[in-house]
Nucleic acid binder design. Structure first.
Lengths: 324, 324
DNA sequence: CTGAAAGCGCTAACAA
DNA sequence: TTGTTAGCGCTTTCAG
């Protein structure tokens, strides 16, 4: 009942169409330079269709030395909707080049990425941050022709932190707080965003942001809010919208209100941020462009072309709602 | 810089160890019945180690007719923590049997699952709901030996809807509302959960739930809330926590409060539900057991054994917070 | 105990 | 224009 039916091979199609395997291959792959009479071509196509023929991926890959598989490695647990949207965009962009994207969660007990890459025979591996040299090496060793993001790129792809801070500064805030994530898996990203905030503060001649780690507990958030108030912070950037939700709860817990007592900016524009109370101002960015650029870079390397250029950074923009 | 290094083949190892490819294969796979002198064995192992040899997945699969790849197909957006935890559990459980799990998002524009299965050469495909007959057929045709969940199983794995409704009914509510998701990708799951709610109502001798579709817009939610109040609904089950957040916003918009004016139960226990205002009562479930059972079923079929039994259902439980 | 040889399904030179 | 052949890297009889 769950046993597989025997695979249809190109031999079956050849027999059915009354031609040789070569002809089948040529027709189905649109081999350049070959001219096959329309009649034969049609016969082959029909036979393939009728039999439900699918070229056998392993054999094809073995022969051609390349698979059409791209592997996306996504960081640990709390994956927001923006990421899954990114995955979809990327999958779509890659599909346009006949590449299939699958993702691997870097779970604590999952097997190491290079192993996965090897068993899949992925041609490309894509991560969210550049891999360290050893991992990248291992990945190439495992057969990956492309590993993204390239190490030399600016890791702060999205400048989210900077945009958050500039929004607050532009609205007159002179003492900025930062709600850092408590989730260890998101540290690297959080560091990155915080750096953007710090830069913006420095450039505006302000003190560095007052950083508080805020987990998803109301009590924790309330503590942080108290601390910010003591430090005369008037505007807070949260690592992401989830953290911002916690801050919102902390503000409420203290009997304060946003934005009157504390202005707040989230990041990522998760769907629920619109239905927060009050609706959450946040920073959104278009992953479409990034996904497309990644896809292009992958294809460029796979086809021996030069990667076009460094990635265009998406332009994060503020979604102004009533929390600032 | 991103070009792949030449792959190390078993021939390389054989040469390095001064033996034949056969011996290499026998040693590295612990071929049964063969006894290789310890000395040779060691030489081979060391050579393989030194060269960083990895058996070439495609060739191995082509030869053996089976890959060690399992493919998990996850529905659209809500890559909530519960789901990603499930993925990790599953990956871990499968890894114990030398199977590698990767996941595929059934995005709108992604390529069809059977295609993905075929290009991967996955031996097993796992979904959240039984696939329809055509899809299952296509998957097997694409080479999958196992397709889960089996069609004959009870699809309402988690009984979430039932638990939500029973919670409200147990607290005296006699007219139940249901906040249905606006997300088309989640329809099947939503239908399923709604069915649980309806069943619970019927068994308690109540009218069927008053269903309203609620997107993630405050205005929409406010409308739904108005409708429920008109219909004398006192308790609402939301499809998931995100939808519940919208309902919360709708309640607030109307100047009402939870749970005084309307009780509310979410589902999935996403991290932010704890920091909702008021904190959201929700239904959580443990996917650990399901993951392990799936893994076992996969392995059972792959090794020609009988699947042990139908899956044990996880036991959803209410996380009582102040919205009910 | 080890090596030689066949063949998984496919594609790309080369022949016919 | 089509068919024949070789070989991708691996495992697995079958001889030696």
């Amino acid at each position: 009942m769950t046993r597989p039916a025997r695979r249809i091979t190109s031999t079956d199609v050849a027999r059915e169409a009354g031609v040789s395997r070569t002809t089948v291959s040529v027709v189905l792959n649109d081999a350049p330079g070959q001219s096959i009479p329309e009649e034969t071509r049609r016969r082959v196509m029909e036979a393939a269709e009728r039999l439900g023929y699918r070229p056998h991926a392993w054999a094809r890959a073995l022969r051609s030395g390349r698979s059409d598989i791209a592997l996306l490695s996504v960081p640990d647990l709390p994956i927001g909707p923006s990421i899954s949207r990114f995955v979809e965009e990327l999958a779509t962009a890659l599909a346009a080049f006949n590449l299939t994207l699958v993702t691997h969660l870097e779970g604590a007990h999952g097997r190491p990425l290079p192993d996965v890459c090897a068993t899949l025979g992925a041609s490309a591996v894509i991560g969210f941050y550049p891999f360290d040299a050893d991992t990248a090496q291992a990945l190439r060793h495992a057969g990956a022709a492309v590993v993204l993001p390239f190490a030399h790129e600016d890791a702060s792809l999205w400048q989210v932190g900077r945009v958050q801070a500039e929004h607050l500064i532009g609205r007159g805030h002179r003492r900025i707080g930062y709600a850092f994530t408590a989730d260890a898996a998101l540290r690297q990203m959080a560091d990155d965003r915080l750096r953007g905030v710090s830069d913006a503060c420095a450039e505006a001649g302000l003190e560095p942001p007052v950083v508080q780690t805020v987990g998803l507990k109301t009590s924790e958030a309330a503590l942080a809010v108290g601390h910010w108030k003591e430090q005369a912070v008037t505007g807070v950037c949260a690592f992401n919208d989830e953290t911002a939700f916690a801050v919102l709860a902390g503000v409420h817990e203290r009997g304060l209100r946003c934005p009157t007592d504390l202005a707040l900016v989230g990041a990522d524009d998760i769907p629920t941020s619109e239905v927060a109370v009050p609706p959450l101002t946040t920073v959104a960015y278009d992953l479409h462009e990034i996904a497309r650029d990644h896809a292009e870079a992958v294809v460029a390397v796979l086809t021996n072309a030069q990667p076009r250029r460094a990635f265009s950074s998406a332009h994060p923009r503020v979604i102004q709602r009533s929390s600032t």
